[in-house]
Nucleic acid binder design. Structure first.
Lengths: 94, 94
DNA sequence: ACGACCCAGATCCAAAGGGTATTGGACCGC
DNA sequence: GCGGTCCAATACCCTTTGGATCTGGGTCGT
C-alpha cells in the first residue's frame, strides 16, 4: 500500500468515476485503474462495486466505505506532518 | 513522501543508527541513507543532527522529533486501515 | 598507525509506475 | 439489430524509482 494508491482511491471514491478522477489527479485512466485493482488485491477485498450492472458508477462497497474514512485520516495526517516540519524548520534558513 | 520513507525514518530515529535500522528493516544501509536524505530534502528540513561531530549517533533534530510523532500516527493509521478492511472483508472468501 | 565502525556517494540492475493504444461490455438513438 | 458513445480493464513500452554492492572520508579505541 502506498500513499499514492490512497490518494487515487479517495479521488475515485469521490468522483465515482475512474476517468474523471484521473483527470482530477492529472494521470491517465489506465494507471489509475491498475492501482485500484492492486490496492484491492493487497487488501484482499473489493473496495468498489463494479458488478452493479446497468449502473456505470464506481460505487463503494461496504469495505470501501470503511476504508475511505481511514484513507482520509491518513492523508490528513500526512499533510499535518509536512506542515509541522515546514513550519518549525522553515523559519530559520535564508 | 512515501510510507516506506516514513517507516525508514522511524526505524532510524529509534535506533539512532542507520546501519542497525537497515538490518532491522532488511534493507542495506545505502538505500536507507538515501531515502532519509531524500525525505529531509522534500521536507526542507534536517530531521537528524549529523553535524554532532564526535558523536556517531543519528540524533533527531527538533524538527525530527516533531515529525516522529506524526510519522508514528500515520503508520498506526495505515495499519488500522488495513485491519479494518481485512476484518470486514475477510470473512467471506474461502 | 591500524582496525573497527559509521554515514554518504557512485554505479549497476531489477521493479514499479505512468503513458498510448486497444479491447470488451453496457447503454442509447436510430 | 447496428453504429455511436461511455467506461473500465488489458497489453505493451518506456522512464523513473529503489535496492544491492563497492568505495571513500571521517572518528574513535588500541
Amino acid at each position: 500500500m502506498s500513499l499514492t494508491q490512497i490518494q487515487y482511491f479517495v479521488a475515485v471514491a469521490e468522483e465515482e468515476n475512474v476517468t474523471r478522477a484521473a483527470r482530477r489527479l492529472h494521470v491517465s485512466q489506465p494507471p489509475l485503474s491498475r492501482q485500484l485493482l492492486k490496492l484491492e488485491d493487497e487488501l484482499g477485498a473489493a473496495l468498489f462495486d463494479r458488478a452493479a450492472a446497468g449502473d456505470k458508477r464506481m460505487q463503494l462497497s461496504p469495505e470501501g466505505r470503511t476504508f475511505l474514512e481511514h484513507a482520509r485520516r491518513i492523508l490528513a495526517e500526512v499533510e499535518a506532518a509536512e506542515q509541522s516540519v515546514k513550519t518549525s524548520g522553515g523559519l530559520r534558513g535564508t
